[in-house]
Structure formats: structure tokens, C-alpha cells
Design a protein around this nucleic acid. Sequence first.
DNA 1: TTGAAAGCGCTAACAA
DNA 2: TTGTTAGCGCTTTCAA
Lengths: 283, 283
Amino acid sequence: MKRPTMKDVARAAGVSPMTVSRVVSGEAGVAPGTAARVEQAVRRLGYQGNDNARHLRQKDPGTATIGLVVDDLANPFYAFMARSVEDEAHRRGYVVLVGSTNDEPRREREVIAAFTARQVDGLILVPTVGGHGFLRQPMRAGTRVVCVDRPARGLAVDTALARHGLRSRTQARAALDALRELPQPPTAAFTSNDVITLGVLDGAGGPGHVAVVGFDDLPLGERLDPPLTVVSQDPVALGGTAATLLFSRIDGDRSAPRSVVLLTRFVARGAGGAPSGTPGPPG
Amino acid sequence: MKRPTMKDVARAAGVSPMTVSRVVSGEAGVAPGTAARVEQAVRRLGYQGNDNARHLRQKDPGTATIGLVVDDLANPFYAFMARSVEDEAHRRGYVVLVGSTNDEPRREREVIAAFTARQVDGLILVPTVGGHGFLRQPMRAGTRVVCVDRPARGLAVDTALARHGLRSRTQARAALDALRELPQPPTAAFTSNDVITLGVLDGAGGPGHVAVVGFDDLPLGERLDPPLTVVSQDPVALGGTAATLLFSRIDGDRSAPRSVVLLTRFVARGAGGAPSGTPGPPG
DNA sequence: TTGAAAGCGCTAACAA
DNA sequence: TTGTTAGCGCTTTCAA
């Protein structure tokens, strides 16, 4: 069974497709009796309009679709962010395409290409390490873009004790285990997101144990022994802010590119930290 | 600056739009020299095809888009499921629209309507408590649907000690606090997802403490004191299975509706439970 | 108050 | 090997 079109409804109601269009889009100037017949045909056939076709022809631009591209949707930090973005989008009648990059520039390009090919009005993007020249073209063509900087970016100095690119709890644990084999093993670990924090916690115990400070708070972090000290970010605020920025652009704001910085909180739960809840500079 | 169309490329390359179409879709039968000129024009103008228009006309059906509708994308359980669905979709060249229902039938309907209006080929749905008659029409029209049953559905008997519809950690804690005020307070709590588990853990301590068994495992659950006992589900397997089922339908499988049941694991970490890792019947 | 014609960006079917 | 015509489902514009 094919999806009924406007033409089908028109035939069923004995009117022209144009009249159906007027009725379903709530335009004035259709006789009540005609409108009623059309509405009945709509219900009888189970007609639902095709938004893709509509947006193709419609004068005012846009598809009421935005794209959200994050590192990993399964990471609670980005999951909260995504939910926040989605709420704002839903409130405005937009839908959200999501994609994870896995921090791979190639997958990032593929995902973004698939999104722009579907004419998204805007993009909220947690950029990978790769270049982003490919964004210029869609931006010139009208796709608005808001980049959300990664928690860890610019943050750690690349010393012999720093490890980057870890993708899982298991990998993080292995990396810590290796670091602890060094002649001068670390006495503390700073972790850049909570998946890594989990892995490091897995390996931090035992003789000469390693203190852990995490970036991003974890549910249950306060119940550990000793409690987990973290630099806490608010992914909900981050997503909400990004979405608000994006929609202001979509709604016509053409002011110069802007950087918005959200505060982080240092939550010292172990011994020897700063007072809990002190607002500090961002990471 | 407007998005360049096939016509623009055609003009720039001195060919007809049809030839551009052939080149960009990799069809054979275009002279190498012509193809080169077209490709150069594509690059110079930064042309990218409009998939919505393409799918509108193209004979083989489908938009290479699926929808994923869950209770709450920020819930780690659904976040893992979403990531898993997305991976499978990405592997097949599909993109994923996501939406959270908040367990509200009305929002569920809105989200699904927005998705079907955009001609999604299929839907993976964690249904709310509401009725789902509105699914019949899109299904008849060709939208494939896979329902993922909720962890808690059918599970708990509605006694004086059962509480449903809790939406947050705070609410869960408040509910437990109230239960503990009863003349015959519970000595144990079974929680249906990890957000609720967290809230219950918040309130479970103190004199006459309440034992907790959770549905869904939590990261760090094993590090609590006492360790958390859970009935563990695998959201990644759930998402992967749902996606595989959906794509087999999209690919033409017309066999009778099917129910697939995944096993759960009972992970007894506190005292007095069954042996760890026993496979058991689903909830 | 209604409809006919044209066209959004693209491709199927058929010429040349 | 290339182009022409028609039309996907819809809305714009204009005429009746």
C-alpha cells in the first residue's frame, strides 16, 4: 500500500490538490463545507503530508531539522547534552539527527555530509582533531554551525605522562597500568572524561595507589571511597546554550562569530583539595 | 549565497543537468573528458546533492533515514542503545533521527509524526504507556517499526509498596523516603532503571537500611559498599538487535511479526543472592 | 472561494 | 554519449 498523496485526497474529496493544500496548512479562505469534506478524506485515507516535498518548494527556507555531532553518544556527558539539545529543538518544532564521530575525522566528515545532504538548517558539532575546511561550503550555503569545544582541548601538556586518544574504560585502565610500570610512576591522575575516569579508577588501587581527579562528574562519584574529586561541567547547560545559539542564528542573527564560555566547578571530595563548589575558570 | 544546484553545475560545465546527474551518481557512459569538466565544476562551486529531492524522485524507495524514539536519551541505558543503533545505521549509510518521549504519549505522537512526515524508512521505538493505533497508518504505508519493550513492563505487581512513573533521581529518593515512613517499611527495594537506582541509593542508608537490587547495571556499581546487586541488561545488544531486525524489514523481509527476547544476567554482588552471572528469564 | 500552470532539485524513460 | 521530456509531492502565483 502506497502512502496517499495530496492528489489522492483531492480526488477523494472532489476538489483540486490546491484546496487540499490550503486545508492541511490551515490557510483561510476555504468554504467550511469544502474544508470539512477535505478533512474527512484526510482522515479516511490516513493522509500525512510529505515534509521533504513541502520544504523543497516552500518559499521560506529550512527543513526544521538540525544535526548534532558528538564524539560518542553513549558517553553520559554527550548523552545529557544531546537530550538538552533535543528538548530545545522539540520545543521549536525541530527534529534532531544525531551522529557519533568516535573522534575519527573521516567518520565526522561522512556524518556531516549525510546531514547537509538532507538540508539540515544547522549543526551542533563537537569537533574531532581533524581540520574543518569542509564546513566552509555548507556554511556559505546557509547552514549555521555551533561548535562545542571538547572538555579536554588545550588542557593537558603533552608530557611523557600524558596519554591521549583512549577510547574506552579498558584502554584507560591499560594505559594507567603501563604508566605505573614506569621508574617514576605517577602519584595522581587527571582524567578528561568519565569513561576514562572509570578505567583509571579500575587500576588506581593497590600498593602506592594513585589519586584521581576527574573532569566531568559521575553519578555515584560521591559514594566512592575515597570520594571522587572532579572538575564538574554541566552538559545540560552546554547543550542548552549551544542550541539557543544555533537557533538564534537560524532565526536570522548575523552578528560576528561568538565564543561563549561556561564556568566549571571544582568539587573536591578527597583530602587536600580546594573548597567544594568553587567556581573556577573553564578547562 | 544560495546552495548551488545541479543546474548551476550544468551551466558551469556546459552540459545538461542530466549529465551532471550521471557523473555525481557514478553512472557509466559519460565521456571521460565531459566527466572531468563536470567534476571540476562540482568542486569549484562546492556542489552537494540534495538528498531530499533525490529521494522524492528516485524509483527505489526510501530516504536512508530511520527514527529512534526512546524514553530519555540522557538515561545511560538508552544512550548506549542509541549509540549501538547509530553504529549499525552508519555502517549501512543511514542516518538517525532521535527523540525522547519522557514517557508522555503526547510527545511520543508528536515526535513520531515529525519523523514519518520526513519519510523515515523505519522506526525503533520504546513505547510509552499510551495506545499506538496511530502507528497503523505509517506501517501500512511502508514504514517498518521495531518496538523495544521497556525493562520494567509487566514486571512489578502494583501493590501498596510499588511506585511507578518516577522521572528523576530526586523523585525516586523522595518516593523511597515516603515508603520508609510507612508502618511496615520495606526492607529491600527493586528498581527498574539506573536513574531510579541512584535515587534509591541516596535514601537507602541509615538505621534499618534498605537493600537495593537494580535493573540495569551502573558503572561503578561494583565499587559501592555494599556492592550493588543488579539484574543486568545489555543495551548495546538490545540496540544492535533492534537495528538488525529493522534493517532486515527495510531490506524486504515480510515475514510475520516476530518477538526477540534477550537474556538478562543476575549479578549478585551483595550477600544472599544467586551466583553471579546466572542467565535468567527476561523481565 | 477555487483551480490551473509552473517549478523546487532531482531522476526515469525515452529519444537522438 | 548526450539531451529532452515528464513528473516525484508539494506550494507559489496568478487567473477565474
